[in-house]
Design a binder for these strands. Sequence first.
DNA 1: GCCGTTTTCGGCCCGACTGTTTTCAGTCG
Length: 581
Amino acid sequence: MARSNDEIAELFQEYADLISITGGDAFRVRVYEKAARSIGGHHADVSTLDVKGLTEIPNVGRSTAEKIVEYLRSGQVSAIEELRARIPAGVRRLTAIPTLGPKKALTLYEELGISSVDELTDAIHEERLRDLKGFGPKTEENILHGIGLLKSAGDRVRLDTAMDLAEDIVAELSRVTGCRRCAYAGSLRRLRETIGDIDILVAAKRSAPFMRAFTELPYVTEVIAHGETKTSVRTGNGLAVDLRVVPPDSWGAGLLYFTGAKAHNIRIRDMAVRQGLKLSEYGLFDVESGEKIVSATEEDVYARLGLPWIPPTLREDRGEIEAGLRDELPDLITETDIRGDLHTHTDLTDGLAPLEEMAAAAAERGYAYYAITDHGPNLYMQQMTDERMLAQRARVRELDGALRARGGRRGMRLLHGAELNIDPDGDVDWPEEFLAGFDLCVASVHSHFNQGREALTRRLVRACENPYVNIIGHPTTRLIGRRPGIDADLDEVFAACARTGTALEINAHPDRLDLSDEHILRAGRHGVRFAVDTDAHSVLHLANLRYGVGTAQRGWLTKGDVINTWPETRLRRFLRKGRPG
DNA sequence: GCCGTTTTCGGCCCGACTGTTTTCAGTCG
């Protein structure tokens, strides 16, 4: 299950929101937001720390530490409970609507008694917001649009949220006596960007012990259905989880069936039918005799249908069956192919950990190289200056030397870079003379998302044409479920990347996964190179790489397509781009 | 409430954009 850190980070974020909604001191709001971020990103489990240990976490002082201790002891924090009692939970949920913040949420609650998204929708349709100070027709329109965005994300959850839960359930059920195999299937196994519900599959002779263990998991709040082969539950965060138990020799057929996607299954079932066979979750059967032919492994089932094993990330009926029949499935990139992360932050800007800690964690992952890319000065909130950046570079060079000395030929190389801001005209933070000092530059859009299509396209193309821009960071800037990607002519941008030797990022953060699988497929047709990066703001974020690699797989990428799988010399050649000298 | 080449108080990331305003509040990154 989620670490105590995540639970407590969420708790303090809620506290910050509640202070903000009730008009509390803005600095206290900031403090608890910062504390939440620090705790969420802290490497050690807070439930193992005492007050002294807790206050060693940045942005956690005595007061916050004592609240953590109180929570771990009693399951609640009295100060937070007091605010919860004053403000219905629904009011806080209103602030999830883009353009609707704490002030407007409080006005809606105090003036109209609105405490849910549905009530708000009704009130807008009944024109009851018109008389409120600060609310005009455009506000109503924006709120309705925001609600639409929120609803379109549906009840799906982020990939990492589902993964944490699923891995915990698999670990629990694997411990039950009689468990032959246990795995998660469904869209989670296919590493889709959001997950609607979790499918867990168990192979065992007797199902009852698993069904019991499953419904008794601590985070199960509701049992929706409880049967012999299938049990469905809902967890505290609203996520539905299905457990299916199949006989051990049906494992392969079951896994294939429950992994999907539906369109993929329909295609292979159709292939079976044409061969006089029938495919179900129990196996591949001969229609006439009813005799089971194969079922033990996925490979067996695919092979009998004339197909090689198809990786789950490709099973979307996007050409994988045809490619399989021709024996032309791509040799997909894997996490172990990645030799380094090329987009990461430190506490010099908005990261949580110092340079040394980030580098040590990267070396721990076995990377051959690792780039530090803090924000440039144009993102004003980051307070970057030339002096600070150059001082960081000196430390990076020093640390690089130390790492090489320690690791010999296998020592990790540290690269010094920056994440530049692409301004509305397509310019970036520094003049070329200064940029020339970096080993690489990531450039990203962080604002002015609503320029027209032409302006946005020109903006990104200009960034590609800058000889010092090596990677376009989170190219569409979408935030899953919260903000759509920018409306640029992506094909033109992809063509510019291919022409100029600029890589497109596959940002591995589960909020972004940007580029998305669909866009990767499109960009790939232009012959673009990619970089799978975590954009890590803490040591823990480095592990998000798996989601970026999964997304790259869903975009059919091989390691040759991805620059940070390349040996250092080849990477450096790519990074030189069209630079003079 | 946290933090400190400012050391126990006083500052805390800063600017842009939007919509509702008549000089600014709220939201966002």
